[in-house]
Design a protein around this nucleic acid. Sequence first.
DNA 1: GATGAATGAGCCTTCATTCAT
DNA 2: CATGAATGAAGGCTCATTCAT
Lengths: 207, 207, 207, 207
Amino acid sequence: MAPKRVDRAARREDVLDAAVRVFARRGFAATRIEDVAAEAGIAKGSVYLYFDSRDALLRAAFARVAARSERLTAAAARPGRPAVQRLADLVRGAVAMLAAEPDLARIMVDLWSTGRARPGTPPGGTAAPALDLAEVYRAYRSVIADLLAEAGRDGDLRPGLGQAEAAVVVAAIEGALVQWLVDPEVPFADLADPITTTCLNGLRPRP
Amino acid sequence: MAPKRVDRAARREDVLDAAVRVFARRGFAATRIEDVAAEAGIAKGSVYLYFDSRDALLRAAFARVAARSERLTAAAARPGRPAVQRLADLVRGAVAMLAAEPDLARIMVDLWSTGRARPGTPPGGTAAPALDLAEVYRAYRSVIADLLAEAGRDGDLRPGLGQAEAAVVVAAIEGALVQWLVDPEVPFADLADPITTTCLNGLRPRP
Amino acid sequence: MAPKRVDRAARREDVLDAAVRVFARRGFAATRIEDVAAEAGIAKGSVYLYFDSRDALLRAAFARVAARSERLTAAAARPGRPAVQRLADLVRGAVAMLAAEPDLARIMVDLWSTGRARPGTPPGGTAAPALDLAEVYRAYRSVIADLLAEAGRDGDLRPGLGQAEAAVVVAAIEGALVQWLVDPEVPFADLADPITTTCLNGLRPRP
Amino acid sequence: MAPKRVDRAARREDVLDAAVRVFARRGFAATRIEDVAAEAGIAKGSVYLYFDSRDALLRAAFARVAARSERLTAAAARPGRPAVQRLADLVRGAVAMLAAEPDLARIMVDLWSTGRARPGTPPGGTAAPALDLAEVYRAYRSVIADLLAEAGRDGDLRPGLGQAEAAVVVAAIEGALVQWLVDPEVPFADLADPITTTCLNGLRPRP
DNA sequence: GATGAATGAGCCTTCATTCAT
DNA sequence: CATGAATGAAGGCTCATTCAT
């Protein structure tokens, strides 16, 4: 009669946490369900109580990365301050967030390559829609391009800046991330300033 | 027997070519020896005539990527022109090369994530030396840092630029690459100029 | 405590009812404990309150089929009427009963094939006694053979009829059942008469 | 260069032979791929060189049973002799064939029950058409009904015999088979005559 | 008693690697 | 040299059974 007291959703979250840690450590491809189970401290079969398949787990991790991305760009919308400053904040915020959650960052890098054979895409090709990584970056660039344009109108940056320059800003962040992940000695968190300075200076109106 | 040697090496190269194509298309993890054999037009077992194991193939692909990187940085050493220009050439050259060889570029992205469980690193940990991706980027930044310093002395860029700014330049390139690979509509080749302009301007002495 | 007993037994019967329905629908092999629980409207674990194991459930279903068979043959013992008529009644009764309980009939067919690896026979071979399907049919034929002999003495059928002819009568019934189960359009219930007529005529003394 | 000398088709047939033996012994449901491999004297994985999946193996066995059935009914078409005799021959031929290939017969019985969830029918329901067991028996009855009608016109049997009586004849054969499979002491092969005699006598014109 | 979360043995399937031809 | 049949270890998933609540 007494339904066992387990918060299913919370437990599911625990398993996903564990999965994210293992994915970050081993990569998607090399991660076996058993690894996730071990990390979560449960039995192999129990993973299937919360996720339908290995693939569902991948997709959930993917969704988490996507959610984080959205939080990131959403934060840049804070109005009331000059666009250049919001831009600088966005860059700093992005770097800080990525640096604070290296596991998710690593997963994102994994997604860059897995992107071709998206998680949830069985060999045949019939895939779950999952998260469209291209869309994530498109949104990212779009937000930045808007800020660049606004700053251009403010006279803080050159006028006429657009998608290309937005791509460069995004690139500086993601590229710095890569270098850090490949070589932990690269001081990613400290690169927020050089990135901001270099890019914003580089986009200032020529004297 | 000498001709045999040549033939053998050429054959090996053919197989590696095929492997690179498949790796780029499917990713490391999803590529089976048989896929490579099929792409190379030989039998599965024959792959083992040229490579000791699946892993050796991975390492060979890695080596090829690394070699490409070295060619890249080596080219920047051409003296006789001002450092700023050699820097701009380096950026443009890198972008052009990556854009021209998307297969190798894709593999490089794959390596970023696989890097943790380095190709050649069996679960146990006793690994073949493989190649050190961190080292590749360290060299890359080093070359650029030297050019930045030289340009600083030339008065073309701010003095005092170092590793951090070099990382930003590398980041802009690699980050742009990622966006292109994730979303083919991003005009990677055309980003060479925005990258160069933004970064170099951003590093100019303040007026 | 007595009421508890009754309750428990009734519950057990409910579960077995549910099991029989599912067995008939899905077949033994494809039926999971959870299916039975769902059909019975209880939780998976609760099935074990009434049956020691999946196998015990199978055996109970078997027992039910066997009990039905016994009721069938027992009914044929009614004396006081000529043997030929009791024989005809037996055939009609059997067909009617099978037609009325297709679920049990389906299970019986399942038992024909599962019979080899008798329910209750774990791979090792140390088995619970379970029920002997061969014995069920032996009894069936025996009753019929007795009726045939008696009818022979009555002069209604040929003398000298025995096990072989009894087997033919049983065969006609079971074989008709099979055809119905395989193809629901076969009018099994209506075959009682053709079976009776054909067999009994066929066993009449030659003119 | 030297393509290994193995007759793929023959090998496949060997594996299927082994599978049929195991299916007959253990039943479909209880048969693991490894059992088949062991019976065939090969490694588990090698089964997959010849069959795409466990299910494909089931379907192949199924097809073999179907082919046997067709041979059976086809044989009854021999014209040039009176229909009654061809009918008697058909019954005897069927019994002889079933008795000679008990493995296939056992599989057929397995199919009767598995018929619901036909081999090749994944849980979802999207099935390969495979063999329609209902169709097999329909054809069987149809051939017999034709012979009965012809014999009726010949005056050897009652006129007006049809599907129902055909079903009884088929039933006698299949039902006898069941009894034999359930209890090897039942002399199935010897039942050909009692079946023929009983049924044909039973269908004679009343004096 | 009842529940359903948890477990882990077991089975199907894939694929790197070997080796007889 | 080249082949591709054969192998068997590994990993995903299912499900009977147990047990804390």
